[in-house]
Simulated scan of single mutants.
Amino acid sequence: MGGIIWLASYPKSGNTWTRTFINNLVLDPEKPVDINVLSDLTPGDARKSWYEKAGGMPYHRYSMGQVVSLRPKVHQLIADLQEDKVFVKTHSIYGQLHGVPQITMECTAGAIYVIRNPLDVAISVSSHFGLTIDGAIQLMNDPNAFLDEAPTLGNIRQYFGSWSGHANSWTHFDRERMHVVRYEDMQEKPEETFTAMVKFLDLDLPEERIKKAIEFSSFDVARKQEDEKGFKEQSAMNEKFFRVGKSGQWKDILTDTQVDQIINNHRVTMKYFGYLPD
């Protein structure tokens, strides 16, 4: 299975956790992989440097239309990094922007789609982007939502749309080549969930190695690393990237009005993925 394996998700849904697990699984280190080198093995598709290489000039000279048009070429550059599969983080929808596919299937071997309860996503989005929770709820309902350029991270603008729009777009991906992972299952039944991910990737690895990768990629390990040396993917809007890492926070934090608003905005998709509260 050569080509890109997309590690896709709406922001703040478990993508970094997935990348951390894959780094520890593939590299099989004696101690947990440094969270600040995750991009060495699992790069993101939003790096400005990819676009500079693909177009042959500094990023600031591109129009947004040119950036969009370069996306397939960028994906080919990433796919060519190695003969085997390449794990690539993306927050993009599975769809088109100005007529250009955001995911280039000619370079694609498969995808892991990580999804999280939007009631909890709203809290994490609020913290990460420096928004009120009401502001986060509004962002998650915006079909044109995007992450603006991040100069400190060297990233381009990333379009991800609404929470349900993002999730629904990826349901159109070839289901035989996609594996869906729920954030909550990663927490509640890690061995079963991560072993299924390994099986999807067609990796024949011993159980002990998978268990070690799960242990080395735990929230507590990542949080300890961030406390000791920071995390370069941290937003400038808050103090911690690895904030709480627990499911069900919404029950204690969101108001009834906020819960109702999220459910009314995303009811069909929440039901599809098993997120409607009793």
Rank of each mutant, 00 (worst) to 15 (best):
T132L: 02
Q187D: 08
K189E: 07
K251P: 03
V114T: 14
S217N: 01
G65V: 02
P277A: 06
Q258N: 11
S63P: 14
A46V: 09
I133G: 08
A54Q: 09
D142K: 10
L276Y: 00
V181G: 07
V100Y: 00
H266S: 02
V86Q: 10
T255V: 04
S9W: 00
K211S: 06
R243N: 00
N141H: 13
K224W: 04
F194H: 02
V100F: 04
V88I: 13
S164P: 10
N238V: 00
L205F: 05
K189L: 06
N265G: 13
A213D: 07
S162N: 06
L81W: 12
M270K: 04
F200T: 03
I156H: 07
T20F: 05
M1P: 05
P118S: 05
F21P: 06
N36K: 09
R209E: 08
N117M: 03
D40G: 12
V125S: 08
S235E: 09
M178L: 13
E52A: 07
Y272L: 12
V198P: 03
I5Y: 03
P190M: 06
S164T: 10
M57Q: 15
I253M: 11
Q249H: 06
D148R: 14
L147G: 13
S13I: 01
E149F: 05
I214Q: 06
Q158R: 09
K224L: 10
E215M: 11
